[in-house]
């Protein structure tokens, strides 16, 4: 079985929830004592949901996002995404998870500065071993989707903030992930550009049924989400649902 087959089998066996978080704690050792970034979080997120994680800085929302993305492991509790228990997954499984199940976008875009826009979008496919022609074809299609078809050969330094973030979104989508994780995606953008990005994310959520979890402390950004989860001191303080 290829990793894609494993993935298909796994996701098919679980109907409904893409994400299940049970009693998750994440402690760091800082300055001699343990610091609890997450102190018992339970949360389930369904397929196709658009969820905003809000809260003041230090509330643990980024930590939670990193756990979902397989960049970090919980100290205790379980984080299950698309059927995979990320806390117990092997290094190899976590790599496949980051490669195929999730896509990341960041506040500071995090494009590789020496790669052109189209090459940045291709990057995840390089790790998957996809051939050059196929990579280029898919990257161009996605850049056109985010309305950057005219910026393929530009370096990140030659692009505006909004354009860079759209390249980052294209990169996050190139492997057809089930889940898009966005960490303050509009934090470095002016409000007009930020709104464009939010519109794009909303469209992707609707068009593709893409599940999106975004972290923000901006109420205006959180407003696009169907559900807002407010964290404080590593715990869920409140959950607000909003009729679509």
């Amino acid at each position: 079985m290829t990793s894609a087959d494993v993935l298909a089998a796994r996701t098919a066996s679980r109907d409904g929830h893409l994400i299940e978080i049970r009693g998750v704690e994440r402690h760091y050792t800082l300055g001699g004592g343990p610091v609890g970034a997450l102190r018992g979080v339970d949360l389930t997120i369904g397929r196709g949901e658009l969820v905003a994680l809000t809260g003041p800085s230090g509330s643990g929302k980024s930590t939670l996002l990193n756990l979902l993305g397989g960049l970090d492991r919980p100290t205790s509790g379980t984080v299950r995404v698309a059927g995979l228990d990320l806390g117990r997954a092997s290094e190899r499984e976590l790599t496949i998870h980051r490669r195929r199940v999730v896509g990341f976008i960041f506040q500071s875009f995090n494009l590789l500065p020496r790669l052109r826009a189209v090459e940045n979008v291709e990057l995840p496919l390089v790790w998957s071993g996809v051939g050059a022609a196929e990579r280029r074809r898919r990257a161009i299609a996605l850049l056109e989707r985010v309305r950057l078809g005219h910026r393929l050969e530009h370096l990140p330094s030659e692009l505006s903030g909004g354009e860079q973030q759209r390249v980052a979104i294209a990169r996050a989508l190139i492997n057809n992930p089930a889940l898009l994780l966005a960490d303050e995606p509009t934090g470095n953008l002016d409000s007009a550009t930020g709104r464009e990005i939010l519109t794009l994310l909303t469209e992707l959520n609707r068009e593709r049924g893409l599940t999106i979890v975004l972290v923000t402390h901006d109420p205006e950004v959180a407003a696009i989400a169907g559900r807002r989860v407010r964290l404080r001191d590593g715990r869920i303080e409140a959950v607000e649902e909003q009729a679509p």
């Binding site: 290094e91 980051r98 990341f104 995090n110 790790w127």
Partner: peptide
């Protein structure tokens, strides 16, 4: 360092 983080977040394995 940051680039390496980006590579890993976009699915690069340790081996990559």
């Amino acid at each position: 360092t940051r680039e390496i983080g980006i590579m890993k977040a976009t699915g690069a394995s340790r081996g990559d």
